[in-house]
Nucleic acid binder design. Structure first.
Lengths: 339, 339
DNA sequence: TTGAAAGCGCTAACAA
DNA sequence: TTGTTAGCGCTTTCAA
């Protein structure tokens, strides 16, 4: 069976307490005792029982990340990069990462409650925020540590990291208008997602600034998947007056839109222009390569994790709320490179 | 503060023991007591302290998945889909999933030891096996539950799920030979990965069966990334006698190879043929779409998780070792569809 | 049907 | 510098 602190106490002839303190390098233990205990512990291959430690310390050194989705859709590189960013940073601190999947349905809150009240994690990272987000309401009200990737409607009195979607989309529109486009379509994310609001707002404000209006027929709601982008682009291209540019609110939908356009014989970048948002690893290598807005998801994962761990340790944050400036990445799909 | 079993005991006037038994629905508690206790528990919003439960029960209902990589590379959809598959299945059982990232360096084993000996998880899922895999050696020797996605050299006396890479690559080669290709190049994974061996073996056996030899100049080692595929394909295309087909051992490298070929003005599917392995979500939508071998990673994640949980519960497995038959997916990049 | 008591492995206040 | 003791919240004998 497993080696416990008790075994070491017996083997060294010291008390359990002394062993505990020696192992934790307290300075009220004699040097010799410390050496002895540590040697014996190493010999016996002692590793502390974490539940016992945690039960005692009332801290878990674990952070929770509940992915708001189920099923194979996690092929979306978004989640992989995010997990990498959060997990790597957690590892640096010696923290663990508890990952669950739970679609945003009526069971969603149960899992947060269970993990919080069961004291399984010291804090949560919240991703893919809705405009009204009960996860955030709940955590705010219980006063439990959390950091958000994204924002919500209403008062933003919690720590978050987000990229400025308004500015990002505005940059895209600016660019397209400068290239001469006037009939610009937009494929948006599901309405309940907060970033849908920001990105659409960016589109509309930038258009307005150039005296352009969004034709309601050119505004279509997608589901963030390639399949969705494909379907919506098909519908747009079938209009009596099709757009000259399609602005998709994420890369995946843009890829779907490109497929749809190509399938109908369009040369993307020449006959029609398509852009994305996220700058996934694929954007650079797709054909044509995708004009998009860069979003450093891995680094954001790093940041939110770092902030959360500091919070759980009672530290205060230098920057509680971070809004990243987006960077436009011009590639071939907008035609600027193509010619 | 948190509600404990003690609070409920006080509130109901029952003993701690009785409360515990009532909550766990033991049948030596009177119906009334049970109802009373459960009502009060619900009112107070009681949730068991999992650390205490686990300390007591010596079981964690948590499984460990340590991703053998670090850094932003988890954009690889492989890991996202795997986590989804494992996580969803774990959720079905009410199990948690503990995810870590740890590159296969000399610190690698420390994290396994810590989690195992700290009794943080009931079992491990091992992925991306090396030909000689110390993770498996260690777990085998400690007799700790684990299930492997992949195989190793030597005796396969542990539970695993894998897809038959030999058959998969053979199917690709068969197909290409039938299309008339004779000069076929291969971009392989890093040598230490076990599936590199199988996939290369599949290529060579299938070639041999047609009396063809692999020109050593056409065999190049990649690193599983797009960037790597790009570089190796460039080298191949610059040969005095370039290949007519490039068989990449995963989709990512195939995408890189496609980019390289296109950049040099080749029409992929006509001037050169490129294939992948995995059938990632992107393969279908790339341009040209990618001929590849399907690997149901999400489902494999489901399977290994299911097997592992059964193992940790002391159940025996109907099928301890599963070798999945691969399915060839013919699309445009091999020229069969293109015409 | 219930409760008292022990103990899971550990940490920490207090005494010696 | 060390050991005694209590206790984290829970489950589980054992006795009543």
């Amino acid at each position: 069976m497993a080696v416990t602190i008790k075994d070491i106490a017996k083997a060294t002839g010291k008390s359990i307490t002394t062993v505990s303190r020696a192992l934790n390098d307290y300075d009220d233990v004699s040097h010799e005792t410390k050496l002895l205990v540590q040697r014996v512990a190493a010999e016996k291959g002692y590793t502390p029982n974490l539940w016992a430690q945690r039960l005692q310390k009332q801290r878990t050194e674990t952070i929770g990340l509940i992915l708001p989705t189920r099923g194979p859709r996690l092929g979306d590189p978004f989640f992989g990069q995010l997990i990498a960013g959060v997990g790597d940073k957690a590892g640096e601190y010696g923290y663990d990462l508890l990952v669950s999947t739970q679609a945003p349905d009526r069971d969603e809150m149960a899992i947060y409650k269970k993990k919080l009240q069961g004291r399984q994690v010291d804090g949560f990272i919240i991703v893919r925020t809705r405009r009204q987000d009960r996860r955030i309401d709940y955590l705010r009200q219980t006063d439990f540590p959390f950091v958000v990737f994204g924002r919500t409607e209403g008062e933003l009195d919690y720590p978050y990291v987000d990229e400025d979607g308004v500015a990002g989309m505005a940059a895209i529109i600016e660019h397209l208008v400068r290239l001469g486009h006037r009939r610009i379509a937009c494929i948006t994310p599901p309405e309940e997602l907060m970033f849908a609001t920001y990105r659409l707002q960016g589109v509309q404000e930038a258009l307005a600034q150039h005296g352009l209006d969004m034709d309601p027929a050119l505004l279509r709601r997608g589901d963030l998947t390639q399949r969705g982008g494909f379907a919506e682009a098909q519908a747009l291209l079938a209009l009596p007056q099709p757009p000259t540019a399609i602005v998709a609110c994420n890369d995946l939908m843009a890829f779907g839109a490109i497929s749809a356009a190509q399938q109908q014989g369009f040369v993307v970048g020449r006959d029609i222009v398509i852009t994305g948002f996220d700058d996934t690893p694929w954007a650079e290598h797709s054909n044509p390569s995708l004009t998009t807005v860069h979003q450093p998801i891995y680094e954001i994962g790093n940041m939110v994790c770092d902030m959360l761990i500091r919070l759980t340790q009672g530290q205060s944050l230098e920057q509680r709320q971070v809004l990243l400036k987006p960077r436009l990445i011009v590639r071939q799909s907008c035609g600027a490179d193509a010619s």
